[in-house]
Structures are given as structure tokens and as C-alpha cells.
Design a binder for these strands. Structure first.
Lengths: 212, 212
DNA sequence: GTCTATAGAAGGATAGAC
DNA sequence: GTCTATCCTTCTATAGAC
């Protein structure tokens, strides 16, 4: 396990990360990965026995990268408002750095849904939700956030953050008319998104009261 | 062009539609399509010269199916509130009928972004937006919906409707804990989503006023 | 129009030299 | 550890009989 070996393995892994994100498992070619890494195909198999094994390594790494981005939200001392602002800012910025990541992961998860379990096992959803709930008892009551409605809200938040990156080519066409660049759109979104969600939540308060 | 030929072509097209949606272009096999259609590979090439040609036909069809679902919203006589309720109900119901459609289209659009242009050409976005704007001048002013913010809102609406179908395996894992089925979640979403969006929009009104 | 057989190319994987 | 050469399977596509 020399310095050099470490370097080559790293090189292959990075090349594979790019190619798999770009083309997906089915579209990726071992040849392309080798070329991008500046070595030849045989070496790929020397370090990672098969295409599957190489892919698994990449997928595992990228998945934990994305999901780990959700945990810092648990930091105490932030209001719900503050948490949402923090989340959208960080999450959108993160996805800007890895623009193909979300699409790649969702795609591969759909191709092999079993895969998701291995990943999600690592993440303690229960603990995550309970901590959030504990921290924001007041808002949950005020905004009438029932256990039934909670998944609706959470998936909406994720959707608002992630969707632009998955539908980027369409969004870009839509933006063309108004002369706004995709990047400007994203920067704007960092503040639009939390305001949008908070507005939606606050309106539940009124709706609830008017029901009584 | 006998009855029979028409039938076979139709048969192939339907089989291809299923397989391409399931596996994507790269993952789809002509062999599988032939088998599903109950014929053999040679016939595929007799009707549709190449895999590419067959794929294009399927893609074109599916894309216009999805996008055409947006236009009935232009029907006059509905309030903005009514439009949003109508849209989410119809759109989610439509995606329930074709659960792999959105994922398939977004995936292939990302693989070949040029493709989107051929499709979007057919759709007169300008006319669409202008008609909406004309119909709801009052709300646009009341809610302070600037040209800059409009794409933010529209992409959020699309995101809330489409995302669950793209991220279905993840959503299902998240729902497991609460014992809610994906279908129940979707039914609930038909009313949650428009309320959520309308709440968010209405809150812009207040924010604006408090800024003055 | 439909089939069987097969060509021809591409891609994953291994053998073996250095 | 890295390379060249090559095997073997898979897949698209075509030829040709019926």
C-alpha cells in the first residue's frame, strides 16, 4: 500500500465519481473512467474487481455526502425560522457545488430501490424527527402540524430545494425569457424558499383558528 | 397498412413505452421490448429502424402527454385558489396513473438536454404565462409577484407535485414509521399542496404591507 | 409481415509480460 | 503496480427464408 497506490486508487475513484454522475450506471463505460483517470481498463479491475463494485463504492460515498447535509439542522439555539433559512442556504449551496449529485442519486435509487435501505439504515430518522419535534413543540402546536401532515411538509421542503437541480434544463428554458441566469435564480431561491415555507406554515395557524 | 400491421406497431410501441420508462434508454434492451410485445427482435427493426428511432417516438409521445396536462389550467372562470386546487388534484392523479413518467422524462432530458428544446417548442410558454398574468392581475399585485419571483413560485408548484414520484422509494421509507401508505400520502397531498401554496402566497401580502 | 440465423460492434473482465 | 493483448458475452442490426 504505497503512496503511489493510494494515489491511483484515489484517481480512479474520482474519475468514476464523475463518469457515474454524468452517465449513470447503465450509461457509464469502464473505458471512459480509465481514460479520465489517465490509466487503462485493466487497472480498474485490479483496484475494484468489477464495475458493480466500483459503482457501489461511489454510490455509497455520494449518498452519505448528501444525507449528512441534513443533520447540522439539529444544532440547538435556532428558531424554526432560522433553521429553515439555514437549511435552504446550505443545501442549495451544497447542490450548486455538486450539480449532478441529486439527479444521480434519485436515478440510481429508482433503478434499485433496495439500495436505499442500506443507506437509510445509517440515518436515524426517528431520532432526527423526535429531536426536531422536541425542539419546536410550540410551533408544531401553533401551526397544527399533525403526524399526518409532517411528511407533507418535509417532502415539500426537500422538493423545493432539490427540484431545480433535477429539472435544470427545463428551468433554464423557462428562465431564458426573463433573462435570469440559473445561478441568479438559485441565489434568489436561498431566501425565497424559507420565506415561502414559513408563510405557508404561518397560514395554517389562521386556518386552524378560523375552524374553531 | 393492414389492421394487423397497425396492431403490431401499436403492440411494439406499448411494450417499448413500458420498458423505456422502467429502464431508461441505456438500460433498455431491444430483446426485452420484443419479448414483452410477444414478437422477436427483427420485427422491431422492421417497424422502427433503430433503437434510437423507437425511443424518440416513445419519448415524444410521453413528453407531450405530460406537458399537455398543464394547459387545462387556462380555463377561465376559476379563481387562483380554484386553479391551484384543480391543478394539484389533476396533476397528482395523472402522475399516479403513470408513476414512472416524470422520472423517466427528467432523466432523459438530463441525459440529452437538447431534446427538451424540440418538446418545449411545441408549447407556447409566453402565451401560457401571459394568459395567467392577464387572468389574475389582482392577485399578482396583491401578492407582490414580480417577474423575478414568478419562476420561483412556478418551479415550487411543479416541485411539490412531481417530487414525491421521483423520490418515491425515499418517501416510502419515511412514511413507514407513521404507517401511512404512499397512496394515502398522495391523496392527502391533493388538498395539502394547494393550501400550502396559497398560504405561502397570502403571507407575501402581509410581508409587503409591513414593508411599507 | 414475421421468423431464424448471424453478422458486427462494444463492453466487461482476465491472462500474462514487464 | 501497470501495461498490452485478448477472451467472452451481450447487444444492435441485418440477411434471407417463408
Amino acid at each position: 500500500m504505497s503512496e503511489n497506490e493510494k494515489q491511483t486508487e484515489e484517481l480512479i475513484f474520482e474519475a468514476a465519481t464523475e463518469v457515474f454522475q454524468e452517465k449513470g450506471y447503465d450509461g457509464a463505460r469502464m473505458h471512459d473512467i480509465a481514460q479520465k483517470a489517465g490509466i487503462n481498463k485493466a487497472l480498474l479491475h485490479y483496484y475494484f474487481r468489477t464495475k458493480d463494485a466500483l459503482f457501489d463504492a461511489v454510490f455509497q460515498k455520494l449518498a452519505s455526502m448528501l444525507f449528512s447535509k441534513f443533520t447540522p439542522i439539529l444544532r440547538p439555539g435556532l428558531s424554526l425560522d432560522g433553521k429553515l433559512n439555514f437549511f435552504f442556504r446550505e443545501h442549495i449551496e451544497f447542490l450548486k457545488t455538486y450539480p449532478k449529485l441529486a439527479h444521480f442519486l434519485l436515478n440510481e435509487i429508482n433503478r434499485k430501490p433496495e439500495r436505499i435501505k442500506r443507506i437509510l439504515e445509517k440515518i436515524d430518522f426517528d431520532h432526527f424527527f423526535l429531536t426536531i419535534a422536541e425542539m419546536h413543540k410550540k410551533e408544531i402546536e401553533d401551526y397544527n402540524i399533525t403526524p399526518e401532515i409532517l411528511p407533507q411538509i418535509i417532502t415539500s421542503i426537500a422538493a423545493i430545494s432539490i427540484f431545480p437541480f433535477i429539472a435544470r434544463p427545463i428551468v433554464e428554458v423557462a428562465l431564458e425569457k426573463s433573462g435570469v441566469s440559473f445561478n441568479e435564480y438559485l441565489e434568489k431561491r436561498k431566501e425565497f424558499a424559507p420565506d415561502f415555507v414559513i408563510g405557508a406554515l404561518k397560514s395554517r395557524k389562521k386556518t386552524k383558528k378560523s375552524n374553531l
